[in-house]
Write a protein that binds this DNA or RNA. Structure first.
Lengths: 224, 224
DNA sequence: ATATACTTTAATGTATACAACAATGTATTT
DNA sequence: AAATACATTGTTGTATACATTAAAGTATAT
């Protein structure tokens, strides 16, 4: 982080801390606190805060304070509703725009991960692979309004991952296999099949997310 | 506009001017200009500008200037793609959440407008009725992530209206009738029919928008 | 005439002092 | 003891001075 301006640095840094729940949902922040923590003056901090509020990641109450937007079960539902609306639609209509080389690369990565014996210990690599896989699909539509919205949703989604802890090894394995099925359908250029497989995958992921929330009561700050 | 803070005033005012193309696509702005025009100091202006950039309505290039985001044909395509994805989906799945009283009110308004002899002279009323009709449908889904995105898109959509000038009286009349068909399907609780009628309506609107752009060459700033 | 280095300019980026105000604590009155 | 008025505090809101820098203009050397 060298040549970009301070307000962008502040924006990226704070957003990252929100996404990873270093600033957990509901946390009370203040400009003063952030000034000290980031060693950046108020002006660029405030710029960043305004943008983050615009994105719904913060709530600024004049003369009272700033809180990190809380998460609730309802948010999981809303996020998955949008994903289930976007992703199958995109793969069905823009699947042909996907780069075959990239698909093969993902296929390889997922297969390798699947064969490795200790793969489930490195969750971070797994999640980043997962995120970029879905991102790749969405980007195929070339609709900036849609892509931008998806990216925003992904940030919220990431917060859930960090709040709820890790998925079960079984669910991780299933995720891998579901991804491979999607890729296979794409390589066969059967977009209808790809779309349906993706729908199924998202539904499974959603249910796994719910199980995680309900099975670990108290250890997270997710509101009902 | 009395008790709200200056940064919000600035945000609303500038956004309004962008939406109505008083600040047309591609226009070069500057903080100084806005300070003079709004009689508000730089700090709240900058706050507003940051938010508007976040929403994609402005492009801020450090040390160079601020321009109102240009519009292109591609944007019309993208905006209608999202509307055609959202609206039929929502009416199909959340139509039952629509308030019947409100539907009857819209039915009345559209019918009255249709019977009035000079209705097509008051485009502003027509458009605001149109906007709130579609907004009502989208709000039924109660998904803030989706609604927020729709609202953003509506702002861009509004810019097109102001750039391209008015629709033909024929298209306005057809729009009225299409809206009435949608309402009828809703009152019959036939959400599948409502969804298809809405899809058709959006397709017609999209084509009318394209005709408007292509038929009035030069008088607008829309890029190909 | 061209290329290069320098200067100027115009714009946003940054820091900071001060204002406004909501919430809370405290003293006074009854 | 309770209620009210007042003062204090902590927070964001606002204004403004100054720093930085990208671009354009200008002069100079070749």
């Amino acid at each position: 982080m060298k040549k970009i301006n301070l307000k962008t640095q502040a924006y990226i840094t704070i957003k990252q801390k929100i996404a990873t729940c270093e600033y957990a949902p509901g946390t009370f922040l203040s400009e003063e606190l952030l000034v000290e923590e980031l060693k950046i003056s108020r002006t660029p901090i405030r710029d960043a805060l305004g943008r983050l509020e615009q994105e719904g990641l913060l709530e600024i109450r004049p003369k009272k304070g700033i809180t990190v937007t809380p998460l609730s079960i309802k948010d999981v539902t809303m996020i998955f509703e949008i994903r289930k609306l976007y992703e199958p639609y995109i793969i069905k209509n823009y699947g042909s725009a996907l780069d075959e080389g990239v698909l093969h690369k993902f296929c390889e990565d997922f297969s390798l991960t699947n064969k490795s014996s200790e793969w489930f210990k490195d969750n971070r690599t797994f999640y980043s692979l997962d995120t970029s896989f879905h991102q790749m699909i969405v980007n195929a539509c070339q609709n900036i309004y849609l892509c931008q919205n998806y990216e925003l949703i992904q940030t919220h989604n990431e917060r859930f991952r960090f709040m709820t802890g890790n998925l079960s090894p079984q669910r991780l394995k299933d995720t891998l296999l579901e991804h491979l099925s999607i890729i296979n359908a794409c390589l066969k250029k059967d977009w209808e099949d790809a779309s349906q497989t993706l729908s199924y995958h998202l539904e499974q992921s959603k249910q796994a997310a719910f199980r995680l929330i309900f099975d670990s009561p108290g250890n997270n700050h997710i509101t009902l």
